[in-house]
Nucleic acid binder design. Structure first.
Length: 891
RNA sequence: GCCGGGAUGGCGGAAUUGGUAGACGCACGGGACUCAAAAUCCCGCGGUGGCGACACCAUGUGGGUUCGAUUCCCACUCCCGGCACCA
């Protein structure tokens, strides 16, 4: 055995052996129970970053652990290969996205292999291959047949200089990131998937999932089921006349009602407090009112400025303008003026709201700003009410006042009464409403799945027939930032209508890449299937543990759940949910540096290109570019990402220390769910530990391997007069060993907290190191400790442990070893150590027999010197005994 | 703005169900080995006071519940993630 730990020699050799043995190929037919562990597939941005290393090492450790526990484990890998960064890279260096993407995949696959992850590469999937995305197209058409796909207009960010649609990420402070131009909202036709049809099931089946509670809560809130009342505020006579003239364009989504303005509220009990109504700038009523009101038209135009991001809309100053149009209160027939508000979203509800400034904080602020009436109609336990300043309790449920027939009713009764009355007069009813909106999947981009629709002037939208799938994306194009190249390529879009055979045009939009990631984990199970999926999917699904970043807690996970249910309803798979258990990894963060370009766009700089100045506490104050010393902006810390150029490539660490050290470092540094600010300060500690482990095994093996305790057989040099009885020291070591096996199994299997598992093994080996006994029986215990320590660490550092196992048990292979068993005999203790407290403060310790009764413990504590000292002669008021833990004397 | 999460020594973190705050590391300081360096090994390492035994303080801030709170409750501050076209 080599006396020095040499990862550079060991790792390639061990990996080559795994490859020869096909060690990680998971058979579809195995008598063992399956364990399907999947990580969110990486976007092939160029190189792995530390977030990937963390993600896949967690996955890999769980794979090995469950394999040792007797499962047929499968860890697949694929590439989320469509998307925006490939187009940006193409624009920057003139290489087609296809080539750039394939090169990146090749490089990153090598990195994955160098990390030694137990990936079954025979199942590799890349979403940009026609063999994969044809099934996106095929399923899109099936969903369309079922009415789960439909077309309507949607609002996008429009860059008026580049004449192109921008992603939210490409809008910085309301301007296009390349042009610096002010972004506008623009309505375009798009394809939608009817996820709202599954809203109830998506909500209800969360309860049974083994997911973190916080993620389930986020999804519940996102879906946002609320029950309320939908009703119509009838138009006042003059308004009705204007709206009925039909000059205002009507949207096709059923948003307008010829007789009035449709609104939805969860606070129908406050209906008597309505003092005005507000509509979105895009609402037909606003359009009509603006027709001969230039000031209002200008305001409506102004509302169209800026992007479509919710965060931007929610934080901007609330502005409004009266339309001069009126609706009537459904009960009193009092006229209510309709305002246009920049905070009313056309995409949510009806695009119109009733305003009750007396009991809604936002309406209150708006009414104050524009001098509108504020009316109290709810009383909360007699708390004071004044229209001067908003108070929290104004929005709380209470009893109705100044509300006519509703007076004295509590919230529930008032809502019921209002709903009943509205229904009686035919103006409204109770309804369940969701915050969740249908999923718009059309993207005006090149590098994605083509939408398989032909637009025929005679037949309308026609689905591409199955036998003409896939609609292949040409892979030699280079986008230029001014709209999709597909829309400029007649070779792509010119086609014949599949129905009538006449000249027609393909849809040149591509699908949202969330489509790709909604079912790839199914395709892994049958990557060569001639159908979307086959029976093998039902063998492996659901995914037993899904691992990935917390940033996907809502969108990706919700879309994949929806997609799975849609596939189930078409009989393609049998599962209701794709991911039985979920481990959300915390983000790996790094500093972000940027500067504004001359054009008004933005460019980012990698932290290693930057010199920073800090204050006394190490806080970063400013930064300069190392290359030319120019000042740039420090933008704080954020997620490692390609676009912000703050990712850290693990390659340096692998080359310097080896894969095992890199793996150990990321696993022992923090719990997997923690957000971490990137640092490699402690990586030396991981390297040191592996060297130390190597040396311990080396020193032991050099004296000859023996059979491990408790059944060592005849020991070399053993004689009749050598005691087989363990010394106190060796008993303690074995106690620690078996406690550690127990703890590490719990940490891996239940807690999924690897940092504490490593710490526990470190503690064990620290104790082992202190034992200097070299007697034959001590050597058998040493063999037991080392073998088990190697097994416990093997899921995290598989290369070095493979090499060490070969020395400890030359006739066997580490990968075939089961998870070690706990020896109950080793855990038997005669005495236990109790903590002694006086008034809750630690005052001493005491050993008691393991079977001592509460009375005996109490009596012993009351005679303890320290306890008596701190009781200072006072009588005990109370004695708290927590069995196995502590005694607290209260005086 | 809304939803979800976080804050513990110089640093990463531990304390799993309300029961010894700081496990295990990193960095640092001292020492051993060495011609020297690296590597390795040993000792120390939250703060304040004390020669010391020891005492007091301390888990973002301010309150509360409890024999006992890092853990539970209330109010707040700052940071991170998401907000539907980054993936």
């Amino acid at each position: 055995m080599e006396s020095q730990y040499q990862p550079k020699a060991i790792e390639p050799q061990v990996q080559a052996q795994w490859a020869r043995d096909n060690a990680f190929r998971a058979p579809d037919d195995s008598p063992k129970p399956k364990y399907y562990c999947v990580s969110m597939l990486p976007y092939p941005s160029g190189k792995l970053h530390m977030g990937h290393v963390r993600n896949y090492t967690i996955n890999d450790s769980l794979y090995h652990f469950m394999r040792m526990k007797g499962y047929n484990a499968l860890m697949p890998m694929g590439w989320d290969a469509f998307g925006l960064p490939a187009e940006n890279a193409a624009m920057a260096n003139g290489v087609p996205p296809a080539k750039w993407t394939r090169d990146n995949i090749a490089y990153m696959k090598k990195q994955c292999q160098a990390m030694g992850w137990a990936i079954d590469w025979s199942r590799e999937v890349a979403t940009c291959s026609p063999g994969y995305y044809r099934w996106n197209q095929w399923f899109f058409l099936r969903m369309r047949e079922k009415g789960l796909v439909y077309r309507k207009t949607g609002v996008v960010n429009w860059d008026p200089v580049d004449m192109t649609v921008l992603a939210n990420e490409q809008v910085i402070d309301g301007r296009g990131w390349r042009t610096g131009a002010l972004v506008e909202k623009r309505e375009i036709p798009m394809w939608y998937m009817r996820i709202t049809q599954y809203a109830d099931e998506l909500l209800d089946s969360l309860d049974g999932l083994g997911w973190p509670e916080q993620v389930k809560q986020m999804q519940r809130n996102w879906i946002g089921r609320s029950s309320g009342v939908e009703f119509t505020l009838p138009y006042a006579a003059e308004t009705a006349q204007r709206m009925n003239e039909g000059r205002g364009p009507h949207l096709d989504g059923g948003n307008t009602n010829k007789q009035g303005l449709a609104v939805f509220t969860t606070r129908a009990d406050t209906i008597m407090g309505i003092t005005f109504a507000a509509v979105a700038a895009e609402h037909p009523l606003a359009t009509e009112a603006a027709r001969n009101n230039p000031q209002l038209a200008a305001f409506v135009e102004e509302c169209k400025k800026g992007g479509v991001q919710e965060a931007e809309l929610a934080t901007m100053e609330k502005k409004g303008m009266p339309t001069g149009l009126y609706v009537l209160h459904p009960f009193t027939q009092e006229p209510i003026e309709v305002w246009v508000g920049n905070y009313v979203l056309m995409s949510y509800g009806e695009g119109a709201v009733m305003a009750v400034p007396g009991h809604d904080e936002r309406d209150f602020a708006f009414a104050k700003k524009y001098g509108l009436a504020i009316k109290q109609v709810i009383d909360v336990e007699g708390k004071p009410y004044s229209t001067d300043e908003w108070q929290e309790w104004y929005a709380a449920p209470g009893r109705n006042v100044a509300s006519g027939k509703l007076d004295g009713l509590d919230q529930e009764a008032a809502i019921d009464a209002v709903a009943a009355e509205l229904e009686r007069i035919g103006l409204g009813r109770k309804r369940v409403q969701y915050r969740l909106r249908d999923w718009g999947i059309s993207r005006q981009r090149y590098w994605g799945t083509p939408i398989p629709i032909v637009l025929c002037p005679k037949c309308g939208d026609v689905g591409v027939p199955d036998d003409q799938l896939p609609v292949v994306l040409p892979d030699d194009m280079v986008p230029d930032g001014s709209g999709s190249p597909l829309a400029k390529s007649p070779e792509f879009f010119e086609t014949k209508c599949p129905k009538c055979g006449g000249d027609a045009k393909r849809d040149t939009d591509t699908m949202d890449t969330f489509v790709d990631s909604s079912w790839y984990f199914m395709r892994y199970t049958c990557p060569d299937a001639k159908t979307m999926v086959d029976e093998r999917a039902n063998k492996w699904l659901p995914v037993d543990i899904y691992i990935g970043g917390i940033e996907h807690a809502i969108l990706h996970l919700l879309y994949a759940r929806f997609w799975t249910k849609a596939m189930r309803d078409m009989g393609l798979v049998k599962v209701d949910e794709p991911f039985a258990n979920l481990l959300t990894q915390g983000m790996v963060l790094n500093h972000i540096f940027s500067r504004r370009t001359a054009k008004g766009g933005i460019e980012y700089f990698a932290p290693d290109e930057v010199q920073v100045s800090t204050d006394a506490e190490g806080k970063i104050l400013g930064a300069t570019l190392e290359a030319d010393g120019s000042a740039i902006d420090y933008d704080g810390i954020g997620t490692m990402s390609k676009s912000k150029r703050n990712g850290v490539d693990p390659q340096d660490m692998i080359e310097r220390y080896g894969a095992d050290t890199a793996r150990l470092y990321v696993m022992e540094a923090n719990p997997p769910t923690d957000t971490v600010l990137w640092s490699d300060k402690a990586v030396d500690g991981a390297a040191r530990f592996l060297r130390r482990l190597w040396k311990m095994v080396h020193d032991h093996v050099s004296a000859g391997v023996v059979k491990p305790y408790p059944d060592p057989g005849p020991l070399p040099g053993d004689r009749e007069d050598h005691p087989r009885e363990l010394s106190k020291e060796l008993k303690e070591l074995r106690f620690k060993l078996h406690k550690t096996i127990e703890k590490v199994a719990d940490d891996y299997g239940r807690r999924m907290q690897f940092n504490t598992a490593v710490a526990a093994v470190r503690e064990l080996l620290n104790l082992y190191d202190d034992v200097k006994d070299r007697s034959p029986v001590a050597r058998a215990v040493a063999q037991e400790v080392l073998e088990n320590a190697v097994l416990l660490l093997s899921p995290i550092v598989p290369h070095v442990t493979t090499a060490l196992w070969r020395e400890l048990r030359p006739e066997t292979r580490l990968l075939d070893q089961p998870w070690p068993a706990v020896d109950p005999d080793a855990l038997v203790q005669d005495t236990i150590l109790l903590v002694l407290q006086v008034n809750g403060k630690l005052r001493g310790h005491m050993h008691v027999p393991a079977d001592a009764t509460r009375e005996q413990i109490e009596a012993a504590a009351m005679h303890d010197e320290q306890v008596l000292k701190f009781m200072a002669g006072q009588k005990a008021k109370k004695v708290v005994v927590v069995p196995g833990r502590l005694v607290n004397v209260v005086v």
